[in-house]
Design a protein around this nucleic acid. Structure first.
Length: 876
RNA sequence: GGGCGAUUAGCUCAGUUGGUUUAGAGCACCUGCCUUACAAGCAGGGGGUCACUAGUUCGAAUCUAGUAUCGCCUACCA
């Protein structure tokens, strides 16, 4: 049997994935095992796989595969969300390219195009996840606009309306003039921008004087309905009861007084535009000001503005400044840095706009959702996000849930000819209610007009852990009862509020239970310069290409190696390279083992027996540590422990130790143990590197078609013996030291050396001799009570080891080395003595600590004694 | 403006309720090796007054306060 010297992932990865699918290993049905449920954070249908998905889904797959091997009924539900704004924008753009204007289509026609687009592109990302090895139950794939999920959304909306939580109202909302829709506060990103502060003079009515205000938005003066000053500001006291005149349009507006105004800022006088600024809006309400809305939904000026009608707000800003300057209203302009809101989806500058929208009252919903996180019923990993969460939940505002779009869940509110409206799950039901409520109207179905708007996408995502199991429509169904609450949600901290918090609220409201027990927050994937990876920067590698180069296993390892929970991951292809190298190391270890001839009659050598005992203990101990790391979601730690266990301990020490001489056979017992160890290591590694582990597991020992590492039982840690591990460590240290001596003294590896050990009262496990002789390539190992002439020496603990060599010893060099060691020990001893000579330490420190210090002292003194003696011998 | 968090080796990070040989890992780096599993490798090695200052303590990377720098969240100074 010949095995390629270089591991080639491409060949095996697709083959194994196909095999797992055919065998339905990813599929889950309720049974009597304990469930381990994970719902995928649904990527949106416009997306293609990026590095953030890679990290996120790798983590989920690791957790799910491990749970499956540990005997849980693991179920990972995949799916996508419909992404109202992003998808609608894509479809509109595509139609425009085809020369079709959205406005020329009916809602139904447009939706047909949208569905067509979704069918074509919506599944790309899920297909890409398969390349990564994701062990999702694909038969459960959901989409937020599937019939059952849509019904859930509508049902919840109606229910919340009936409970008085959903209401309709005129509010200042975040308006995206590009997408032509309102947004929630969470969809607005505030950025600092360089802008200008314009000082404008408003004439005082019936006087010669003027009052100067400062504004960053001169175009909004056309919507001004007051000027406001602080009542405590003496400069403006004389303006009480007077009016000002808006430049250019000559509107007369009152000068009002409110201590909201900051006397220190600008001129101390503030222009009030209630229609286009949240604060102004509130002041407007308080002082009963007129509201003049000067903008069209697309950000151009409307008739109410009187001037510049039909022109874009930013064009108008430029032009109006010029006009104001020319006509003498502009006193001065200053550079100014302020924060401006941008749409998360379209990057358009948000326009605060008064409009009639649907809102969800968050006050009551947020309270229990805060509690369950604070008391760790829902545990956050890392825990630090609890405080961020608390801060948001304590300052929560109502959620604007309506969007002026077509793609999404249409709001089930039906308007009647008398301007009343009915909220109901279907038009028929609405009609029935309306007929009962207003019998005098003699209503027909055709009299009811459904609200044109759709719901925020998050209004469907927040039900995800419930709705994928149809728990809203059928609260008592077998699946929701079995799979819910889910185990862990793996997601990015960016959507803690958008999504995580709201899922907890929905979960508690509709199932009376938390939706997940743990929330694992991953870091954000950045490039080496700490920039967030983004399409516009072009700094994100294509994951599919990466997997082609390094293998899916390699990329998975690369993603995980350096990404502790909650810390941003500075992605570097070198990490994937490390992953690939690891694959290759495993591959070659397999080649070595598979190349051995087994001789049934050969007795097991002592060195092999010792090594097996050690590795068994060491493996068990490490497995305990790995399991602990998993319990704390410290996945990188777990991986690193495993990485070292395989590379350093198994390959570099164990295999080298048991490896038979060139072209010699190995004894059957050692061979079997080695295969066992190798298989166990592959099983422990499988969640991290599913493909290569399956391949190696099958190659090591032929398995039948119905066996797979992914459904095998995860090894459980057995007993380990501390002494066995410590003794082996001593042997390793002796061997490493002899290698250093070889290098220093230019003793070729193939030349045998001799080793003499002066134990100086130490216990020494002589069963290690055989192993040391083998790995140090020694002729023999002897014990001595005295100094060994003409040799290089080193110390392991308080044991002295000598390696004689033929050339004459450079005494000065040896003495210098010993002096260095003594110097270090003396410094060390001094720090120990500092403690021990301090009465307070001896009296106050726990006896155990004092004891340790005493031991350190004794050890250091003994070492110094030995070294000094050695030095004297050399001098003699 | 408010809140949260960070600062440990060239880089990315551990350091578990203050004490375990005067700080650990991976990568990178340096030296020597094509030693028949692996140069995508092997063997060995160097490298940090734990941001700064003061304090608490017998003892501080770890606790407290302040300073500096950075990051994230949040807010109505036009």
């Amino acid at each position: 049997m010949t095995i390629a010297t270089k591991f080639n992932p491409a060949e095996i990865e697709s083959q194994w994935y196909k095999h797992w699918m055919e065998k339905k290993y990813f599929n889950s049905k309720p049974d009597n095992r304990e469930p381990y449920t994970v719902v995928i954070p649904p990527p949106n249908v416009t997306g293609i796989l990026h590095m953030g998905h890679m990290l996120n889904n790798t983590i989920q797959d690791i957790l799910v595969r491990r749970a499956r091997m540990m005997g849980y009924n693991a179920c990972w539900v995949p799916g996508t969300d419909h992404a109202s704004i992003a998808t609608e924008a894509k479809v509109v753009e595509k139609l425009r390219d085809e020369g079709i204007d959205k406005q020329s289509l009916t809602r139904e026609e447009f939706l047909e195009h949208a569905w067509e687009w979704k069918e074509k592109h919506g599944g790309i990302i899920l297909e890409q996840l398969k390349k990564l090895g994701a062990s999702c139950d694909w038969e459960r794939t959901k989409f937020t606009m599937d019939k059952d999920l849509s019904d859930s959304v509508i049902k919840v909306f109606v229910d919340m309306y009936n409970k008085g939580l959903v209401y309709r109202g005129i509010r200042m909302v975040n308006w995206d003039p590009k997408a032509n829709t309102a947004l929630s506060d969470e969809e607005v990103i505030h950025k600092e921008v360089q802008s200008k502060l314009y000082y404008l003079n408003y004439k005082i009515e019936g006087e010669d004087g003027h009052i100067t205000i400062a504004t960053t938005r001169p175009e909004t003066i056309l919507g001004d309905t007051a000027i406001c000053v602080n009542p405590n500001d003496d400069r403006f006291a004389s303006y009480k009861g007077k009016n000002a005149i808006v430049p250019l349009i000559g509107r007369t507006i009152p000068i009002i007084f409110d201590d909201y105004v900051d006397m220190e800022f600008g001129t101390g006088a503030l222009k009030i535009t209630p229609a286009h600024d949240v604060n102004d809006y509130n002041l407007g309400l308080k002082h009963k000001l007129e509201v003049v809305d000067i903008f069209n939904p697309d950000g151009t000026l409307n008739e109410s503005a009187q001037l510049y009608v039909g022109k874009d707000r930013f064009v108008v800003r430029k032009e109006i400044v010029e006009e104001l300057r020319q006509k003498g209203f502009l006193q001065k302009e200053e550079d100014y840095v302020n924060k401006v809101g941008f749409s998360e989806r379209t990057d358009e500058v948000i326009e605060p706009k008064i409009s009639l929208q649907w809102f969800l009252n968050m006050q009551e919903l947020s309270k229990p959702a805060l509690e369950v996180v604070m008391d760790n019923t829902v545990a956050f990993y890392p825990e630090k996000f609890k405080s961020t969460y608390a801060h948001w939940m304590e300052n929560i505002k109502d959620w604007c849930i309506s969007r002026q779009l077509w793609w999404g869940h249409r709001i089930p509110a039906y308007y009647l000819p008398n301007k009343e409206y009915i909220v109901a799950e279907t038009k028929e039901e609405a009609l029935k209610i309306a007929q009962e409520k207003f019998p005098e109207l003699d209503l027909q179905s055709s009299d009811l007009e459904q609200d044109e708007d759709v719901l925020d996408t998050w209004f469907s995502s927040w039900l995800w852990p419930i709705s994928v199991f149809d728990g809203i429509n059928n609260p008592d169904n077998e699946e929701i009862k079995y799979y819910y609450p889910t185990e862990v949600l793996v997601t990015a901290p960016e959507i803690l509020f958008f999504w995580v918090a709201r899922m907890i609220m929905a979960g508690l409201e509709y199932t009376k239970e938390i939706p997940f027990k743990h929330v694992y927050l991953t870091g954000i994937v950045r490039d080496k310069q700490r920039r967030k990876m983004s399409k516009s920067l072009g700094n994100s590698p294509d994951p599919i290409e990466l997997m082609g180069i390094y293998g899916a296993d390699g990329v998975r390892i690369g993603m995980l190696l350096s990404s502790p929970a909650g810390n941003d991951l500075l992605f570097d292809e070198a990490l994937c390279e490390q992953g690939r190298n690891f694959s290759n190391k495993i591959w070659n270890a397999m080649r070595l083992v598979k190349g051995w001839q087994v001789d049934e009659n050969l007795p097991q050598p002592l060195y092999a027996q010792t090594s097996i005992e050690w590795f068994e203990s060491h493996l068990n101990k490490t497995l305990i540590d790995i399991n602990e790391a998993f319990d704390k979601y410290r996945l990188s730690d777990a991986l690193m422990m495993l990485y070292k266990l395989i590379w350093d301990d198994f390959c570099s020490w164990y295999l080298e130790a048991v490896k038979p001489a060139y072209q010699q056979p190995i004894d059957a017992k050692t061979y079997k143990e080695t295969i066992d160890f190798f298989e166990k290591l592959m099983q422990i590694l499988h969640p991290f590197m599913p493909f290569i582990t399956e391949e190696v597991w099958h190659t090591l020992q032929s398995k039948n078609d119905d066996e797979s590492i992914m459904i095998s039982s995860m090894p459980k840690p057995g007993k380990f013996d501390k002494n066995t591990i410590t003794n082996f460590e001593i042997a390793k240290e002796i061997i490493a030291n002899t290698r250093t001596i070889r290098q220093e003294k230019n003793i070729p590896n193939r030349d045998k050396i001799e080793i003499f050990i002066n134990k100086h009262n130490n216990e020494f496990d002589e069963s290690l001799n055989d192993l040391i002789i083998k790995l140090a390539n020694a002729e023999n190992l002897e014990f001595t009570d005295s100094n060994v002439e003409n040799s290089a020496s080193f110390r392991v603990g308080t044991m002295e080891c000598f390696v004689p060599f033929s050339q004459s010893v450079n005494v000065e060099e040896e003495i210098a080395k010993i002096d260095d060691e003594i110097k270090y020990l003396e410094g060390f001893l001094k720090s120990v003595m500092g403690k021990l000579s301090n009465e307070k330490f001896v009296n106050n420190a726990p006896p155990k600590v004092v004891e340790i210090e005493m031991k350190k002292k004794a050890d250091a003194e003994e070492k110094i004694r030995i070294l000094t003696e050695q030095k004297n011998n050399l001098k003699a």
